[in-house]
């Protein structure tokens, strides 16, 4: 019977080497060679400065930028080291109060359009959702256009340009990467 334990010990050691080290390191090597940008974190640069990751949502301040969805990650939101959702149930008083506040805030900052789309009042699962829906973007377009003194049409055109449709026509939902949209907006002079 003790033979089993010795075998178990040896098999544990061997498998740690193979699956715990060789495998991830091999993938790391292949990733660096073939997909160096993605494997190192999909960093987005403006000039020499890294301003974020293409796949990670970030907190946006001010009327001039499109904002992402409410986030429960970290104290301020959008903290990649504390990902997660609010985990509040649909009949939670706290959640409802938050949603009511979100709606009020959105209506205050976007006075010309009616009730906000559902994504903009609900917190995402990861808290670092990099995307918003086209409806979310269009809802914020008048505010951004006004703050930047741009014609609404140009902003809307930009939104269409930055919209990614469903993959293969059926996978996922149409979406806009907020960082990409805002960077494009900044380039729009």
């Amino acid at each position: 019977m003790s033979k089993h334990f010795w075998t178990a010990l040896r098999m544990t050691a061997i498998s740690v080497v193979i699956f715990g080290f060789c495998y991830p390191i091999a993938i790391w090597g292949i990733g660096r060679a073939a997909f160096s940008w993605q494997s190192s974190g999909s960093y987005v640069r403006v000039g020499d400065r890294i301003v974020g990751s293409a796949i990670v949502g970030q907190l946006w301040r001010g009327a001039r930028y499109f904002h992402g969805r409410p986030s429960a990650a970290g104290k301020e939101g959008y903290d990649p080291t504390a990902t997660g959702g609010s985990n509040l149930g649909p009949d939670s008083k706290i959640l409802l109060a938050r949603e009511v506040r979100s709606i009020a805030r959105l209506q205050r900052s976007n006075p010309t359009v009616g009730t906000p789309p559902v994504d903009l009042v609900t917190d995402s699962g990861s808290g670092i959702d990099p995307d918003i829906s086209p409806a979310d973007a269009r809802y914020q377009a008048p505010r951004v256009a006004a703050a930047r003194k741009l014609a609404l049409d140009r902003v809307l055109a930009l939104i269409s340009k930055e919209t990614h449709g469903r993959t293969l026509g059926i996978l996922g939902e149409p979406r806009i990467n907020v960082l990409a949209l805002n960077l494009a907006l900044d380039r729009l002079r």
Binding site: S86, D119, T122, D123, S124, G125, G172
Partner: peptide
């Protein structure tokens, strides 16, 4: 007044 499905805790993509 907010229409649509339950997006709390879900990702846009």
């Amino acid at each position: 007044g907010v229409r649509g499905g339950n997006m709390v805790g879900k990702e846009s993509r």
